[in-house]
Computed example of a mutant assay.
Amino acid sequence: MKIAFVGKGGSGKTTLSSLFIRHLAANEAPVVAVDADINQHLGAALGLTEEEAATLPALGAHLPLIKEYLRGSNPRIASADTMIKTTPPGRGSRLLRVTEDNPVYEACARTLLLDGEPVRLMATGPFTEADLGVACYHSKVGAVELCLNHLVDGPDEYVVVDMTAGSDSFASGMFTRFDVTFLVAEPTRKGVSVYRQYKEYARDFGVALKVIGNKVQGPEDIEFLQDEVGEDLLVTVGHSDWVRAMEKGRPASFELLEASNRFALQELQDAADDSYAHRDWARYTEQMVSFHLKNAESWGNAKTGADLADQVDPDFVLREGAEALVSPRSHSPRPAPQPA
């Protein structure tokens, strides 16, 4: 399953995405976690020190390697230089899988141990001094979108992406790459305003949207959220002493998380599992191609000097068992994990 966490800045989006990742790891599920927020805090929420989080490899810095690997022997892509963030896979492309080893993971991922269970963590990377005033953050998340376009995940496998805050995630087609999107909302007018924006923008794209009510203090808060978001409200989460200790850098064993919060996390996993059963691979591929053609016409053709519509393989559908190149190291031993 591909799962996104979105929400207003300060809503607790990153905290909840990290709790969900820990929950999946505790259930021994294969997980790839991706920090795609402009404020890179997922690593710290998963137990890294600030110094360790700062040394995470940046996906954006390895974009040439990612493009060259994913291109494979696809005859429709003349060179990696003509690939843009929306380039879809086709016959001959290399596809990524959650549990395999490949050069992309080797260069861009770090394996953490969360209570003894391995999780792969990837990050877009923060703004650098050279980026300030001249670069758009959405150009950095292009590497994430390209990887998601080439990733084949099966049931009981999870890719969890902590997205940038607010409605900025609609600056690209990446918002359509997920089986379910969990929107974290506080029980306030500002808290649900992002929900309304997201609901409106996503309406025509079949985005499965579920709301997590966070920082809920009592029945009045729950009633407010029910009135504002209706049946999209999936679970609510209140104060957590475990989370407070984690934010101080002193997390206890995850099994000591409050029972009510563990129940809420299981509800999220159940919703994600259910969403996979409704995945439409053909529509998923069609949306990918549609956004690619829009980007090609808008800026991609001019930037690359090529007609990027030619990259579309009309007979290819991304799905489990899709005909594409498989990394020769797909079944090699997993990299040695490092404790968080």
Rank of each mutant, 00 (worst) to 15 (best):
A36F: 04
N214R: 03
D35V: 05
V192K: 03
D221W: 09
F182V: 06
A264D: 01
G43L: 01
E68H: 05
E50T: 11
V326S: 00
F175T: 02
D162W: 09
E286Q: 14
G60T: 12
L114R: 07
A277F: 08
R71E: 00
F170K: 05
V211I: 15
V235Y: 02
D81I: 06
L151K: 01
N74H: 00
K199R: 15
L183Q: 02
V160Q: 05
D307P: 04
V194T: 11
T236H: 13
F178L: 09
S327T: 02
L233T: 07
K13S: 10
M246R: 15
I3R: 04
M246D: 12
E28A: 15
T164F: 07
K8R: 10
A165P: 06
L42S: 05
P155G: 08
S330E: 02
L209E: 04
A29K: 15
G116F: 12
R177M: 11
R22C: 13
Y105W: 13
G133C: 11
A324C: 01
I77F: 00
I21Y: 09
T99V: 09
F291S: 01
K13Y: 03
A61M: 11
P30V: 01
V235Q: 07
S330C: 02
S79T: 13
G305V: 11
L257T: 02
V98Q: 06
A26G: 14
K215M: 12
F263C: 05
E223K: 13
E320R: 08
R177P: 03
E258K: 05
E223F: 06
W299R: 09
A33K: 07
S18W: 12
F178A: 14
A340F: 05
V184H: 04
Y69H: 04
S290L: 14
G12C: 01
D131T: 07
P103S: 10
L265M: 12
R279M: 02
Q226G: 15
G173N: 08
D168C: 07
